[in-house]
Nucleic acid binder design. Structure first.
Lengths: 350, 350
DNA sequence: TTGTAAGCGTTATCAA
DNA sequence: TTGATAACGCTTACAA
């Protein structure tokens, strides 16, 4: 009855269905795409049966070619091994599914060249839209994306000179301010920050918030307290060494993501520096494990679900209605979750 | 010079390039696909220039329609928020990139219906191949995949009745045996396992290995020691309660993945049950944070990189050479990494 | 209500 | 070495 498994039989096309049902291609197409034209209930039935009998499946590429519309979006993130982006990707895929959109996943590894390659692939495949966390060093290519009429939503990070893109992220400046103030409130004055690359908006914003807190609340904003690390820098342990080797070592540090925090923690353990007794830590992003760490980390919690949902919602909005002349910017707010990685110093105000 | 940003200009096609370069479409196509036919160096130059000048980009869908070959593969996993699958996805995306393959990511959330939807989408898009961690309850649809000539590599899990699929996974039976033996060696006799669903091959294998160790090494394989939980079951805390409510509570438990382990740990903390003093734990999969947990978890470490690389290699092999009549099965080996979540009991052999 | 046919952007065959 | 031209599988006017 059925063909032998290996016999990669010629795929059944709309023509086969038409012949089998004794109608023309056009009719079949119309039952496939209801609303495009009338079809007699009886014929419709017959066609549907033929479709089932022949196990016909429409050929997306042909459809896309004719209709000039794909049902695919692109997702461009740094690295899906990063819990933050993994969460994001999981949400995006789910949300996209409910809109009948496929998701092409690409990663930049924070490498501008890979980013360009990703974007080109997505453009060649004519995705309807892209949700992206840009590396920050390729504004031109992103501008081309919007120029071509491909809808674009930046997530987590932003690029100032891509005006047509929507942006959804958190208020990193405020979050860093809060984190720093929390430390200052606990008596810390010598506070460091291990930030992500300053080529990325989040890195810049976090350092700015950190600086503002120090200045405003009377602590010392020393340059040697600011470390710019790659988000996945495996050598960030060196920053820890430097921080502790200072004549007057820091008593606290704000760490910009969980991957960095993991590396830092490992280094501190190796050095037998106790958290929080010898060094207090606040970490950006509340990965599930931060509560399980030793000690449980005080973190800045981002509204991950809202970020992802908003990104997809904005993209879908652009896909289904006339896209606006300028990108919409959505800033969600993060909150500080106090746990056990911050010590209270009682050496009074300095 | 350039169009206004919004003016979604008609996409430039190969025809435009041909006209601009003063040649025929065929020639342009031939410079685009070298090796297909001759082209004079001078013409080639001219065409290349036109391509650049017009910013021409080939239309993948058209290409695919004509050539009946896509440059996309599908990746079907349960849930990319799960660290295991996230790692896998990250690798797959990278490896695919280097083969010039796009990756369509879909998730099943362990739901057979979503799995079917994913597979249909991928088939409609005519992906060249699929790397999948099947839910275990949809053999039929996977058989259809191979019947249609789409290459298939199962990863992590396997389905017995899909003979044409390659499989790459770890030896879960042996790993569970090792984990259990480790516990027995440390003096434990009342050992539980919180396994994944038995509808998934890994769950079955792990329980089998666990059972074999108990029987072979003289501990008690009681039915009430085996808990079948969904991999992301948020109510697995209940299993913990049950285990501890036993007349003679267990002294150790093997936990089937890190998500479950996190939930279990949280529950134990709430109950003020100390790890490992009151309960020892071995966890499947060495997520980066397991070493940072309190206490650091003793884990079964899977060779993640090898798993992902092998999956892509097998798929690529099937894509580039004549696929074999039967699937290849690759079993990699996991290793036990001893840390601090297992106590040594000194109540002698019973 | 249905059929016919053009055309989406490519590749590939065949003549020139 | 190049140019016409026919598909690929589908959607969509338009005609019947």
């Amino acid at each position: 009855m059925t063909d032998p498994p290996q016999a990669k039989r010629r795929a059944v096309t709309i023509k086969d269905v038409a012949r089998h049902a004794g109608v023309s291609q056009g009719v079949v197409s119309r039952v496939l795409n209801p609303g495009i034209g009338p079809v007699a209930p009886a014929t419709r039935e017959r066609v549907l049966e033929s479709i089932k009998a022949l196990r016909y499946r429409p050929h997306t590429a042909a459809r896309e070619l004719k209709s000039q519309k794909t049902s695919t979006i692109g997702l461009v993130v740094a690295d899906v091994a990063n819990e933050f982006f993994a969460r994001l990707a999981d949400h995006v895929v789910r949300a996209a599914r409910s809109l009948d959109l496929g998701v092409l996943l690409t990663t930049t590894q924070e490498d501008p060249a890979l980013e360009v390659g990703s974007v080109e692939m997505l453009m060649d495949k004519r995705v309807r839209g892209i949700i992206a966390a840009p590396t920050g060093r390729n504004s031109a290519i992103w501008r081309e994306v919007t120029d071509m009429g491909t809808q674009l939503v930046f997530v987590d990070r932003t690029l100032a000179d891509v005006p047509l893109a929507d942006v959804v992220g958190v208020d990193n400046e405020a979050a860093a301010f809060d984190a720093t103030r929390h430390l200052i409130d606990r008596g810390h004055r010598r506070i460091a920050i291990i930030s992500g690359p300053l080529s990325i908006s989040t890195g810049r914003e976090r350092v700015a918030g950190y600086r503002r807190a120090l200045e405003q609340l009377g602590a010392e904003p020393l340059d040697e307290f600011v470390f710019e690390a790659d988000f996945r820098d495996p050598t960030v342990g060196g920053a820890v060494d430097a921080l502790l080797a200072l004549e007057a070592p820091v008593t606290a540090v704000v760490v910009s993501n969980t991957a960095l925090a993991a590396t830092v923690t490992r280094r501190l353990r190796a050095l037998e520096v106790a958290i929080p007794d010898d060094l207090s830590i606040v970490v950006f992003h509340d990965a599930p494990w931060t509560a399980l760490a030793m000690p449980a980390f005080t973190v800045i919690r981002h509204p991950m679900d809202a970020i992802a949902d908003t990104a997809v919602r904005l993209l879908n909005q652009r896909l289904t209605t006339d896209p606006p002349q300028h990108g919409e910017h959505v800033r969600l707010t993060s909150t500080l979750v106090e746990r056990a990685s911050v010590a209270t110093l009682n050496r009074g105000a300095r």
